[in-house]
Design a protein around this nucleic acid. Structure first.
Length: 551
RNA sequence: GCCCCAGUAGCUCAAUGGAUAGAGCAGCACCCUUCUAAGGUGAAGGUUGCAGGUUCGACUCCUGCCUGGGGUACCA
């Protein structure tokens, strides 16, 4: 509103648009930075006065000051009331109508069949889901796709291993563990006997040629795995719109290859089919034995997504080690003319590593997600026994607290650099952590119970003491933070806001007493508590953190 | 060799080119007869890997170097 008013009244500051930034610290609510003021060629004092008079009468602004080269705009209390009431009461408040006709596709989680769900999949899954939720919240149409790794040479290996050393009935009892064991055994044996790799390649070729035996074994592996993944997602509170594994695109590969041929992009080189690219290695479309590759299937998937959803953007949440692959994918798609209305975003994240190096399912060097969750839950339970032994549902609370700790560890960083795994690092239960946020929320919920109990039927009244202003300022930032977080796919900005809100709320809680003898006063005091609970709750929903009324 | 990513407090990490580089942990000094101490308050802790450059303004952009990680044609 302020921005519009300024642009209208002043015709923009420097002829163009007014750029309002969120002011830092105690410097008001919004500001114009020195660059903008300089560009306008106007004296900063005079400009401040001009802005002030343009905004006078709106009731929104208390003062406009020229400070340290900036122009800072301080909002009135009325503006705070209006904003907070909107946030609390209007569910659609955060939605931006400009986005309602834009679809964004999110590719995230995407684990591989027949492999256990390791902590390595966590970042893609957690960050991907949060990013999806954030975009949805501000009004985009969203499609989440779980691009399961259910096709490729490793299935040849798996089939060979099952046939040689496995018993289907035995595997069915504990599929993931058994398949994983067989997969590892394959690689051990293949080191001694090169011919196994050749055998595996042949079995994958058979699979692609729809050999009945190969298909049956493969289907079993897929079913077992999907069941397992579903169980994990349930625990994590992750909901992905659709599972479309690589195999889904099997019958669409030839179409892509034809199109490449038609557009004269396909070349033969050393027996393989490739697309040559500028400044990077060529993209391999077909192996010399005629089998397809990751690239082939990703191209087919990309085309399918563009045709089906007509998205303005496709965001890939995958490991940073795949950067080159996606650069190639984008380059090929561009050559094919697919990207005129669709933008590809590679939201790569650093890898979770072990002290000893990269995690590897082949060598059995992984930390399983279940073990991590188990450990987190155990640690949370210990603290509950210590601090709140009367808590109901201790087990499920401990689980939710443990999971929030794990998720927050991923959500609070946006780092591309690798992470060396350690339980202590990921399971933080105090300080800037998931459980700290939950604790703060539970304090709000507890206050609410007390308020309703003590002052039955009392209505909350819009009111802000000066001491609550700092907190109110943070709460109303949720809209701007969501926009900014979505823009660069950085859910950590939202996590950071949640932390700052919780921190400020806790400081206020120690200083002020909310529920007092007088009903009227309590009703006024409770305004900021309700707003805090609402905003924190909203952020929890978006980040996938469980709201616990008691902790 | 070439390409990509990272290097910020003792440790783990924040910071759309903007104000005094911020948190947590560890350590130090405090605060529970009062709404949940998984909390709060205070002090201490920095040549943002190194050297240049661009800019009114650089952790952020550019160049070179150092260190770590990843990638680099028939794995995904």
């Amino acid at each position: 509103m302020i921005k519009e008013k300024l642009e209208e009244a002043l015709g923009g500051i420097a002829g163009g648009k007014v750029i309002l930034e969120i002011a830092k610290g105690e410097f008001g609510d919004f500001c114009l930075n020195p660059g903008q003021i300089k560009e306008s060629g106007q004296n900063s004092e005079e400009l401040a006065a001009k802005i002030k008079s343009a905004l006078d009468g709106s009731g929104l602004v208390k003062e406009v000051k020229s400070e340290a080269g900036y122009i800072n705009i301080y909002l009135s209390k009325q503006a705070y009331f209006d904003e907070l009431e909107r946030i609390v009461k209007d569910e659609s408040y955060l939605k931006n109508n400009d986005y309602q006709n834009q679809t964004i596709v999110f590719d995230y989680s995407s684990p591989n069949i027949a492999k256990p769900f390791s902590v390595g999949h966590l970042r893609s899954t957690i960050i991907g889901q949060a990013n999806y939720n954030i975009h949805e919240a501000i009004g985009y149409k969203t499609v989440g796709i779980n691009h399961i790794g259910d096709w490729g040479t490793q299935f040849g290996k798996l089939i060979v291993a099952i046939k040689k050393w496995g018993v289907v009935e035995e595997i069915a009892k504990n599929p993931i563990k058994e398949l994983n064991r067989l997969y590892q055994r394959f690689h051990e044996e293949a080191e001694k006997d090169e011919s196994l790799n050749e055998e595996a390649r042949q079995w994958f070729k058979k699979l692609e040629d729809a050999d009945a035996e190969a298909l049956e074994l493969w289907q079993k592996c897929v079913d077992w795995s999907l069941e397992e993944f579903e169980r994990i997602y349930q625990i994590l509170g992750v909901k992905i719109d659709e599972v479309k594994g690589e195999s889904f695109y099997e019958d669409k590969l030839e179409g892509v290859i034809d199109e490449l041929k038609q557009k004269n992009l396909l070349k033969e080189s050393e027996g393989a089919q490739i697309v040559e690219l500028e400044k990077m290695p060529p993209a391999l479309i077909k192996k010399s034995d005629g089998a397809t590759l990751y690239m082939t299937r990703d191209l087919a998937a990309l085309k399918h997504r563009i045709e089906t959803y007509k998205p303005s953007r496709i965001i890939y949440h995958v490991g940073g080690d795949q950067a080159l692959h996606f650069k190639q994918l984008e380059a090929v798609a561009k050559k094919l003319g697919w990207l005129e209305k669709t933008e590809i975003v590679f939201a790569g994240h650093g890898l979770m590593r072990l002290k000893s190096g990269k995690m590897s399912t082949r060598r059995g060097q992984v930390v399983l997600l279940e073990d991590l969750i188990g450990e987190a839950k155990e640690r949370a339970l210990k603290i509950i026994e210590e601090k709140n032994p009367d808590l109901e549902n201790k087990e499920s609370a401990a689980q939710q607290i443990g999971i929030s700790a794990i998720k927050y560890a991923d959500l609070s960083t946006n780092r591309r650099s690798d992470v060396v795994f350690s339980f202590d690092k990921i399971i933080s239960l105090e300080g800037n952590s998931g459980p700290y946020l939950q604790y703060s929320y539970a304090r709000c919920a507890s206050l609410k119970r007390k308020f309703e109990q003590k002052h039955k039927g009392a209505n909350i009244q819009a009111h802000l003491d000066d001491s609550a202003l700092k907190l109110a300022k943070l709460l109303k930032q949720i809209g701007a933070v969501l926009e900014s977080a979505a823009k660069i796919s950085a859910p950590n900005q939202l996590a950071d806001l949640a932390y700052r809100i919780a921190n400020e709320f806790n400081a206020l809680y120690e200083k002020e007493r909310f529920i007092v003898g007088d009903a009227e006063q309590s009703s006024k005091n409770f305004f900021i508590v309700e707003a805090t609970q609402k905003v924190l709750g909203k952020i929890f929903d978006l980040l996938g953190i469980e709201k616990l009324d008691e902790i």
